[in-house]
């Protein structure tokens, strides 16, 4: 089967996008997307470190992603575009479309000689109230991440999850404990912040989250936060909420919150083992990626014939898509599998 595919691919002209040792590459335009090694021209889907790396010559990304990657990468040469705005390089038409993953995240649409490819970057179909919601883009070939491409992953509506999180905060407060909630400093932290109920108490932040949130405040409105500094006392924090990056778990920094209860918001919290391994008290299943059914729905909505599965449970998802009649295969990338 694979060898037949291979011959078929060889017999056609060079594919519009190829996967080489530097990233996803459009030969016709000499442009990379989310390259993992330094290149001249790169389109960046979103601000997470594995997709927007340091060292490229010229960056192209959505307007809203510019302050984010500048915050992370410093003074880079970057051009901003709007969603749906088409720009051409060597007769190849590119445009960015909302991916719903985090603020400023995009899918990349590539069109050449009537053929359309879409690379999703990271994405989810649910409207999280922070990122511009995902929009389906019709294409012939759909390059999809599948971080959670397994039928074991079924997200509940975020309204239910946030009711649970706010309830958790409230009951910790009643027991006289501080709530420490872990989430990545870009994306998850802002999504949590947006939906925490500020009537329950104050929302304190770790420095990494405070800084990134400051950047995001230019683009979206969020409840007030207070940075934890050396002058913050245990008493100040008592019963309130602390947003911290996962790396803060088990650090000396966290001792200041005592007595505290830990929670983590991630798609990986689906697994009991994952929560126990991280020694987290309470896991909340909340992801910025598609779950199993969302992935299937996304593929279907594009009307594509070919699917290329990148990072995640690629083999399994591609195999299942083939049983549904898609021409599906996998490609290796250097995007993190475990990040959420």
């Amino acid at each position: 089967m694979n060898s037949i595919l291979y011959i078929l691919v060889l017999s056609m002209s060079t594919p519009l996008l190829i996967f080489n040792d530097k990233g996803i590459y459009c030969t016709a335009a000499n442009v990379y997307i989310d390259a993992w090694k330094p290149v001249d021209n790169v389109i960046i889907t979103h601000g997470h470190a594995d997709h927007s790396r340091w060292g490229h010559q010229r960056y192209i990304t959505h307007h809203h992603n510019i302050p984010i990657i500048k915050h992370r990468l410093g003074d880079i040469e970057v051009v901003g575009v709007d969603y749906g705005e088409t720009f051409s390089v060597n007769n190849v038409k590119f445009s960015l479309h909302p991916a719903g993953h985090i603020i400023g995240s995009s899918q990349v649409r590539v069109e050449h000689k009537g053929e359309v490819w879409v690379f999703t970057g990271d994405y989810k179909l649910d409207d999280d109230g922070v990122a511009k919601p995902y929009e389906s883009v019709s294409c012939h070939t759909f390059i999809s991440e599948c971080t959670f491409g397994l039928p074991a992953f079924n997200w509940r509506p975020q309204k239910e999850v946030f009711e649970e999180i706010n309830q958790w905060w409230l009951s910790n407060q009643e027991e006289g404990r501080t709530s420490v909630l872990f989430g990545y400093s870009l994306g998850k932290a802002q999504r949590l912040l947006k939906h925490l109920n500020p009537d329950i108490g104050k929302i304190y932040t770790h420095g990494a989250i405070e800084n990134m949130t400051d950047v995001c405040r230019q683009l979206v409105e969020f409840p007030a936060t207070e940075l934890i500094t050396r002058d913050t006392t245990k008493k100040d924090l008592h019963g309130h909420m602390v947003l911290a990056p996962p790396s803060a778990h088990g650090s000396t920094w966290i001792r200041k919150m005592t007595p505290y209860v830990t929670g983590s918001a991630s798609g990986w919290m689906t697994f009991r083992g994952a929560r126990r391994r991280r020694a987290i008290d309470q896991g909340f299943v909340l992801s910025d990626h598609c779950d199993w059914n969302q992935l299937l729905e996304a593929v279907k909505n594009t009307g594509c014939e070919k699917v290329i599965c990148t990072h995640g449970y690629t083999d399994i998802f591609a195999k299942y898509l083939r049983t549904l009649g898609y021409d599906a295969r996998t490609e290796k990338t250097q995007y993190e599998e475990q990040e959420d």
């Binding site: 039928p151 992953f153 079924n154 697994f271 449970y313 399994i316």
Partner: peptide
């Protein structure tokens, strides 16, 4: 009951690592 092929269930089980949990999830 989950309307997935058996091989897909098995793959899920290998990753979830617990049969009772896998069934409850799918």
């Amino acid at each position: 009951l989950a309307d997935i092929p058996l091989w897909l269930f098995e793959e899920s089980y290998h990753i979830v690592g617990d049969l009772a949990e896998t069934i409850a999830l799918v």
